[in-house]
Design a protein around this nucleic acid. Sequence first.
DNA 1: GGAATAAAAATTATCTATAATTTGAGAAGG
DNA 2: CCTTCTCAAATTATAGATAATTTTTATTCC
Lengths: 222, 222
Amino acid sequence: MGKEPEDTIASRISRVLADRIVRGELAPGARLRQDHIAEEFETSHVPVREAFRRLEAQGLAISEPRRGVRVASFDLAEVREVAEMRAVLEVLALRHAARHLTPAILDAAEDAAREGDAAADVHAWEAANRRFHRLILAPCGMKRLLASIDDLHAASARFLFSAWQSGWEKRTDHDHRAILSALRQGKSDEAAAILQKHVQWIGRGPQPAKTGAARETFAIVG
Amino acid sequence: MGKEPEDTIASRISRVLADRIVRGELAPGARLRQDHIAEEFETSHVPVREAFRRLEAQGLAISEPRRGVRVASFDLAEVREVAEMRAVLEVLALRHAARHLTPAILDAAEDAAREGDAAADVHAWEAANRRFHRLILAPCGMKRLLASIDDLHAASARFLFSAWQSGWEKRTDHDHRAILSALRQGKSDEAAAILQKHVQWIGRGPQPAKTGAARETFAIVG
DNA sequence: GGAATAAAAATTATCTATAATTTGAGAAGG
DNA sequence: CCTTCTCAAATTATAGATAATTTTTATTCC
């Protein structure tokens, strides 16, 4: 019954730490001390070090030999870099996924879009948004590509969360609807074009400065 | 004098193992036993395990909890996946690098192209080819993008080496020349278009079956 | 008072040891 | 002869211990 895959301790630690970094609970530049983390997870530091290697590969942490590991910092340039990578990779994935999209999948994506519009806070919105993208891209069946996109989503989400500590506001995402509409009509090129612009906007437009400007930036985070 | 950064043991092990996997010295599916590797490198298995995590993230090895790590296998579908990812990411990089390309860089790339044409074996060719691509892409200054491309190059090289165990033959790579020519004339869109096709061809065309067909496939591996 | 320096504390990287799981060889049964 | 079981050997995963390096704190000298 209750199959408990409960994989290695290292992977659990890396998941938890990745989540904290993405959510901003661990600030950029913060030191990750292996003994402290080991103590928190009630293990030795060996699995912790393995988790660090994973975070490093994901671009969420930076390790300097003998000097420890810290949370990776990121600037606007990197946010744009990630956005552009996502744009080309998601378009590639969508092109391959298109032929495998069923009405059922598109309905599920529609649900995710609705859920995003109704989200009460930025975390709920991000989860729904991620689900939307994953649903329409996963049918491409390209594991490596999907894994890369997941990592880039995490990086995007970091930026998103850092900009909206507070002040969320419901709103309809027209891009998501337009993508679905195009896909339902079999116009996959059009869907890909919208997706590309949709994603590429991240990090452009008004700087996420004071809370006042926050609302404007919303539209450009997908 | 001889500054010896000689970073952590784990990173050295991961570099060596990655090289062996790419060159095909370690066959797909082969088990990587931590104690044996530790013994070979005269260390304990702890750094070895850290190296494994790195290889896993690069897609060169696959780890199953409690069952060990094996060299990742790859099929034609994955080769194409990697080729398509490279195509879109390298084009993205080139678009950003274009404005920063100097005549000196293009000359160095020309050298690399010549070196590739004169290569006596497949390893020499691959090294020159990689150098060519890196030279024209690095000026984009996007670290994450370049790191992803490097990983994809490793995956491509694996395929290349598996196809050409022997039977190398000198030959001029016209695509490389055409890309440089376009770049020298400031036609970066044209250069990007050629690059895209150049890379995308990998894994297409005649199957790398018997040694006889090998020659044909050459033209389409870049 | 502040830079320079030396001793102490904390932290990383690695090694050795132990527990737990898997693989594989051989024996028993159909 | 092939399957299934049992037990030993090999292997993985984690813990605990040690050496080496970095960071911090305290102290001296100008």
